[in-house]
Amino acid sequence: GEEMDTAEIARQVKEQLIKHNIGQRIFGHYVLGLSQGSVSEILARPKPWNKLTVRGKEPFHKMKQFLSDEQNILALRSIQGR
């Protein structure tokens, strides 16, 4: 696969979550399948791509996919709003 700019992906995700008022817990649960603790760690201190294991890269693939389609963001927003 291609190398990803993990810091940039994390920054964009944080931006979207704040902009749409989506909590990290909801994002972690529905998008990444991770706990809030793992999510906040990944978003606060993303490791460089070449330092990640295959498993460590997974959340970034999912985040990139999440960012690529605004429908994903809107869907999360409606879950959050319940």
Rank of each mutant, 00 (worst) to 15 (best):
G56F: 07
A7E: 12
M4F: 06
Q24G: 04
F66C: 00
I26L: 13
V13C: 06
R82H: 15
R77T: 12
H20Y: 14
Q24W: 14
R25Q: 13
I22F: 04
N72T: 09
Q80S: 12
I22L: 06
F66G: 00
A10R: 01
K51D: 14
A75S: 14
Q65I: 10
G23N: 15
A44T: 14
W49Q: 00
L43D: 02
M4W: 07
L17W: 01
K51V: 14
Y30T: 08
K47C: 10
S78K: 14
F66S: 01
I42D: 02
E8F: 07
S38K: 14
R82W: 08
L32K: 00
S38A: 15
G1S: 13
E3R: 08
L76T: 02
F60H: 03
R25H: 14
T53I: 03
N72S: 12
L52V: 01
E41G: 05
L43H: 00
Q80C: 12
V13N: 03
I73G: 04
G23M: 09
L67A: 02
L76A: 03
S35Y: 05
H61W: 12
L32M: 05
K51W: 05
I73Q: 05
K19I: 06
K57Y: 03
I42V: 09
L17D: 02
R45H: 15
E70F: 07
L43F: 08
K57V: 04
G1I: 14
I18H: 11
L43R: 00
K62M: 07
R82D: 10
S38T: 13
H29E: 14
Q36V: 12
E2K: 09
A10C: 11
R11P: 02
R77Y: 09
I42Q: 03
H61D: 07
E58Y: 08
I42P: 01
G33H: 09
G28M: 06
L52W: 01
S78H: 11
N21G: 14
V39A: 07
I22K: 00
M4N: 05
Q36S: 13
E8Q: 09
S40I: 09
T53A: 05
Q36G: 12
E15Y: 10
A75W: 13
P46R: 00
R45C: 13
N50F: 06
L67T: 01
V13F: 00
L43Q: 01
L17N: 02
R55Y: 10
G33T: 01
N50K: 10
I73A: 12
Y30D: 05
H20E: 04
L67G: 01
A75F: 11
G37W: 11
G28V: 04
I9R: 02
S68E: 13
S68M: 10
E58K: 07
K57R: 13
R82F: 06
L34F: 08
N50V: 05
V39F: 08
G28Q: 04
E8G: 06
N72C: 10
R25M: 10
K51Q: 15
I79R: 11
E8V: 08
Q24S: 09
L34V: 08
P59G: 12
D5Q: 07
I22W: 03
E41I: 04
I26T: 13
I22S: 01
D69P: 02
V31T: 04
S68D: 12
G56Q: 15
K57Q: 14
G1L: 12
E41F: 02
G33N: 09
L52M: 05
K47H: 06
G56M: 08
L52Q: 01
S78R: 13
A10D: 01
L76M: 04
L76N: 01
Q71C: 09
A10N: 02
V31S: 01
H29G: 05
T53C: 11
R25G: 15
T6W: 01
Q80Y: 07
E70V: 08
H20R: 04
T6I: 00
F27Q: 02
E15M: 07
G81Q: 15
G28N: 06
G56Y: 05
A7T: 11
L34S: 05
G56H: 05
V54C: 11
Y30C: 11
L67C: 04
G81R: 12
T53F: 03
I9H: 03
H29L: 10
W49E: 06
N72R: 08
L76I: 06
K64M: 11
M63Y: 00
E8H: 08
I79L: 14
Q71A: 13
L74K: 14
E3C: 08
L67N: 03
K19R: 09
N72G: 11
M63A: 02
E3P: 08
V39G: 02
A7G: 08
F60L: 02
R82G: 15
V13H: 03
G81P: 09
A44W: 07
I9A: 02
R25K: 13
G28Y: 05
F60C: 02
F27G: 01
R55G: 12
L67S: 00
A10V: 14
F66H: 00
I18Q: 15
I42W: 03
T6G: 00
A7Q: 12
W49V: 03
N21S: 10
I26R: 04
I79G: 07
E3M: 09
G1F: 09
M4Y: 07
V13D: 04
E70N: 10
L67K: 00
L43C: 01
G81K: 11
I73P: 05
Q36W: 12
E41R: 01
D5P: 06
Q71R: 11
H29A: 11
Q65M: 11
K14A: 05
K19A: 08
Y30V: 11
L34T: 07
E2V: 08
M63C: 05
G23E: 15
K62Y: 03
S38R: 02
G56P: 02
D5V: 03
E58T: 06
E2S: 10
L32P: 01
H61R: 13
R55E: 15
Q71G: 12
